[in-house]
């Protein structure tokens, strides 16, 4: 495998990562190849020493598990399934009670074997309803006092540390849309530009129609030569503005308004994400 093949295989394997990260990683590997080549090594040896692109990419992908906080959750792309780290001893199934959670307890808490006869005083001297009464071991004194159910309490998982794991909190499905950016973009860029462009067009059209109407009025009236000259000037100006407005409208209305608005809508609909630069193989 030469440098080019290695890099493109690596790039393909990394496609789930943000494109900036991919570029960064790829650059580092290209640099690795370049240094190796400058030291007189051949590309396939360098590639062989790097390990397979799949293997390498796998490390990057497993390192890129999103940070575990609610705020960060909204940045997770829906196509990227987060791998959920499980805290040791955490009760995953909500239906599992503390009794079965004993399965997570260290070996030292395991139930004593039935035939491991303890010093015969310990269990028998206990009152019938004391520590292990609730375990159901009341009649047969099979359990030693160190069983999992005696005094060992299991704390509920600490959801404050991993709030996004808390099954009792309902959360909206993380949206892919960056709403704040969309709103700011709309208010500060899209709307002002739109209004200014519209105002210019309306002004030009207004001037065209206004001056044209004035010239018609003056021609109809025609009281003197001065007025006739004024009318001619108005007509000329009207035509000039009309021509400018027509050119402006044709060019910018079609290109700017239609294409621009469509691009804007697509941009907003895609969640304000620019198209990735370059394809991934």
């Amino acid at each position: 495998m030469n440098k080019k093949e290695y890099i493109s295989a690596l790039r393909a394997q990394l496609r789930r990562l943000p494109s900036d990260d991919v570029e960064d990683i790829v650059k580092e590997f290209e640099n690795h190849f370049d240094i190796g080549i400058s030291e007189g090594k051949n590309e396939s040896d360098i590639a062989a020493k790097l390990g397979s692109p799949e293997e390498v990419a796998q490390i990057y992908l497993s390192d890129s598990v999103p940070a575990f906080d609610v705020n960060g959750a909204s940045n997770v792309c829906a196509t990227q399934m987060p791998i959920i780290p499980v805290k040791t001893g955490m009760v995953i199934d909500r239906g599992v009670g503390p009794q079965t959670a004993a399965g997570f307890a260290p070996v030292g808490y395991a139930k004593a074997p039935v035939n491991a006869e303890p010093s015969n005083t310990a269990p028998k001297s206990e009152p019938a309803d004391a520590p292990n009464a609730h375990t159901g071991a009341k009649e047969k004194e099979e359990y030693t006092a160190t069983g999992p159910q005696t005094g060992k309490t299991y704390a509920t998982p600490n959801y404050q540390q991993y709030p996004s794991q808390d099954p009792n909190v309902s959360r909206p499905i993380p949206s892919e849309h960056n709403v704040l950016f969309a709103v700011l973009f709309t208010i500060f860029v899209f709307v002002p530009v739109w209004i200014v462009a519209l105002a210019i067009i309306l002004l030009l059209i207004g001037l065209t129609i206004g001056l044209g109407a004035l010239s018609v009025m003056l021609f109809c009236w025609l009281p003197s030569l001065t007025v006739a000259v004024g009318g001619t000037v108005c007509l000329a100006l009207s035509l000039a503005f009309g021509a400018i407005a027509t050119a402006f409208v044709t060019f910018f209305a079609i290109k700017g308004f239609v294409v621009g608005t469509i691009a804007y809508i697509r941009f907003i609909a895609k969640g304000c994400k620019a198209e990735p630069k370059g394809g991934n193989v």
């Binding site: 640099n31 690795h32 240094i35 293997e55 490390i59 990057y60």
Partner: peptide
């Protein structure tokens, strides 16, 4: 630099060069 770290480590503890870069990134 990355290449130096990768080649030294791969020689001494027999790992593949490629594993060093993800680690550096992390």
């Amino acid at each position: 630099y990355g290449y130096e770290l990768a080649s030294t480590l791969s020689e001494t503890i027999m790992i593949s060069d490629g594993t060093v870069y993800p680690l550096l990134r992390k």
